[in-house]
Write a protein that binds this DNA or RNA. Structure first.
Lengths: 122, 122
DNA sequence: CGGGATCCTGCACGATACTG
DNA sequence: CAGTATCGTGCAGGATCCCG
């Protein structure tokens, strides 16, 4: 196998992860792994996300098969977003990522302070 | 604890992950976990990355304490980038992420095709 | 060799207003 | 309630040129 083949594969990985690891999707997936939610429930639980971005994130996750969008025909109509089996395979990974940030947040912050202090605070 | 406290914490996680999971850092970290590299070695191994983006990614990783930058005083001078102990704690996670993409790439692609076929290919 | 400095572009994201 | 439509912005990221 040549280097270019390797890097093509690596690039596919990157693109795929880019799709899933967008600004909000991890938070959304985390919530949906817990239990199905409705649109405005997610908005309330992730206050920093705009309605447009949440819509986009949900669409992308749905397109990639990570979540399912169920239309419940009531009045007014309700929409349930729920994790898919494929999305569920990410749960452990997501938990591990959040655990990692919890465990190393301070360490990273300290490193940042140190770096900023050394590199021209001019 | 209130909702806002929860979401603030979640937001810190998101920001931290955003720092680390930028477009190229996972690929860079993956290489550096294997062995130290020099700047142009990384460029060659990740052909899609531009020089500017690689520089930025390395700087960010260094600032966050994930990698170390060693200046070797030869002529011409050489720079060794190597994984730090903190960065090393991410290795298993990164491996797991790449394993996940390898395992589910086809599934995701199929889901995408299905989604695109259903939603107005007009 | 390992970058820095500039210029430029797209697109991610937010704000706001409106709708079935 | 769950969006769509439109507008505006920043900033990530590529292209190019230059430097010790």
């Amino acid at each position: 196998m040549t280097d270019t083949v390797h890097s093509q594969i690596a690039d596919e990985h990157r693109e795929l992860l880019d799709q899933i690891l967008d600004k909000w999707s991890l938070l959304v997936l985390d919530k949906l792994c817990e239990s199905p939610r409705r649109f405005n429930e997610l908005r309330r639980e992730i206050p920093a996300v705009s309605q447009k971005s949440l819509t986009a994130s949900l669409r992308r996750l749905e397109r990639n098969g990570m979540i399912r969008r169920d239309v419940v025909n009531t009045r007014p109509l309700a929409i349930r977003y729920e994790i898919s089996p494929l999305g569920h395979t990410l749960q452990d990974l997501i938990d591990a990522l959040f655990d990692w940030t919890s465990a190393h947040m301070d360490e990273v912050a300290a490193s940042r302070d140190h770096f900023d202090a050394e590199n021209d605070p001019r």
